[in-house]
């Protein structure tokens, strides 16, 4: 009995020390982690909606979006955080839209775990820049291995059609949802 009690005590002791130490480390690092996230959010919003002065977070039902204003307080666009399934895992991105949602002002891929060298190239600036000025009506599309000739299309990354299509699908799905609430 005594030995069991000792075992139990030792394990509890170590668990408590571990919990205590970790809470302490977490308390120190949590503000930094939080600041990191906010900074990343800020950078991606400024990146996708050019020429803005301030933005405000809005939550409508399940949707979160950012209303972006210029220096004189006019709404010049929206930034929409979106996520969905890619080829290997979840892709998170930020889409910038004009106030009437008819045109994309830019996108920024925040997180993806696609195949490095293939699908992972959706993170490259060249791919993301294609979305600037793309029309959202009737829907964003993509073409393979050639320059797109419609103003709604982008060119898929060579050898990574599924990842490229995922990005397009995520964007379309969220714009449709966003239109409903706006």
């Amino acid at each position: 009995m005594n030995r069991r009690l000792k075992m139990l005590l030792i394990m509890t002791l170590f668990a408590c020390i571990s919990g205590g130490v970790l809470s302490l480390v977490y308390l120190i690092s949590a503000p930094l982690i939080e600041a990191n996230m906010l900074e990343e959010e800020r950078r991606s919003i400024l990146n996708v909606v050019p020429g803005i002065d301030s933005y405000e977070e809005r939550i409508e039902g399940e949707m979160k979006y950012f209303e972006c204003k210029d220096a004189s307080g006019f709404v010049v666009g929206y930034a929409l955080p979106a996520k969905g399934n890619g080829y290997q895992g979840v892709i998170k991105l930020m889409v910038g839209l004009t106030p009437d949602l008819s045109e994309i002002t830019g996108i920024s891929i925040l997180e993806q775990v696609e195949t490095p060298g293939l699908g992972g190239r959706i993170s490259e600036q060249v791919f993301q820049d294609q979305f600037q000025g793309i029309k959202t009506e009737p829907a964003v599309g993509y073409v393979k291995n050639q320059a797109p000739d419609k103003d709604t299309d982008i060119q898929a990354v060579t050898g990574a059609t599924i990842s490229s299509r995922s990005v397009v699908t995520i964007i379309n799905r969220n714009i449709v949802k966003f239109r409903e609430i706006l």
């Binding site: 170590f14 571990s18 130490v21 970790l22 480390v25 977490y26 690092s29 982690i33």
Partner: peptide, 15 residues
Amino acid sequence: VIIATFVTMVDLFLK
């Protein structure tokens, strides 16, 4: 438990 504690520290540090 000891190992997991240090791993969590590394993880928080990287984040």
